[in-house]
Design a protein around this nucleic acid. Structure first.
Lengths: 150, 150
DNA sequence: CGCCATGCTTACCCAAAAGTAACTTACCCA
DNA sequence: TGGGTAAGTTACTTTTGGGTAAGCATGGCG
């Protein structure tokens, strides 16, 4: 617990030192490191959105499908299965008919909410910055045309 | 600044309230929302590793290639271009011969370091939890075989 | 003089991921 | 008897990600 503390006021440097120090200790650059692999699975648009949705409490498959606009049934179920496998969500089946299945965050899943929320906030807060950077980049005619991922 | 504070001791609830409140305000579930789109681009294994690498300072292409084990030249250059486009890194060309190009984080890029570091730390700290969850899941023979992403 | 080494970039191609849409199961209800 | 419903599942196709290997420029060196 108490993972991140006062990292803003300790160093004169631009970058928060404790973060840097801690990054240096994780061998995330090594693809064979489990931390790297987990990151690879977690850093996924749908995973993030599903976890976000479940912060609001138990949700049924249909509710998730409705809330996460644009997700296909296949992607939803696939990512739900993966999240269950990683121990981040729990799947409860009520053997009624029509079937009823509820998904909820496990304690481990809940512990991931804060890191993801921080990332989401960053995205949300820097929309304008990124947009203007992209326009600026795209406007310069210097042949940077064929790399855009959209 | 001061984005995340004492979220552990304020609520009786398991989940950090401030994060939840703020998530609710972002319309990340809407694919047409710019925040959603940015998240989609940032939540990418290679992007994260490149930003991590650049927290250590300016780096040349070759240095990055060496440090980020397993990245192909194409992925490296593609993600560098994207990061530049988003305004997260800066590309400096020294017109010497052999050419020399240095990449560094912009202030915007530096602001992303802390969120990513927190995510990386989560991954690193919960390796054991996730591993045991996966073993447990894989051991139950109830035909969950065809979904695994590895 | 010409060939090699270096650093970066691109072309080409295949494999994996993700979207689409139709199908399933089993009960209830009209 | 047949339509509706919830939660998937499957087959099929398209899109994207990613690896391999070659291109290019130029200064150094033999």
């Amino acid at each position: 617990m108490a993972i991140h503390h006062d990292f803003e006021n300790s160093q004169p440097n631009y970058l928060p030192q404790p973060a840097l120090e801690r990054i240096a200790q994780m061998s995330l650059f090594d693809t064979s490191c489990a931390g790297h692999q987990i990151l690879e699975h977690i850093a996924n648009k749908w995973i993030i959105l599903i976890v976000y949705a479940l912060t609001q409490g138990k949700k049924r498959y249909g509710e998730l499908k409705q809330q996460i606009v644009g997700i296909s049934p296949k992607m939803l179920i696939q990512n739900l299965r993966n999240l269950e496998r990683y121990g981040l969500i729990e799947r409860e089946v009520y053997p009624t008919m029509p079937p009823r299945v509820e998904y909820s965050l496990t304690p481990l899943g809940k512990s991931l909410v804060e890191p993801l929320a921080i990332l989401g906030e960053w995205a949300y807060q820097h929309i304008a910055d990124v947009k203007t950077a992209m326009q600026h980049y795209d406007d310069q005619p210097t042949a940077n045309d064929h790399w855009q991922s959209k």
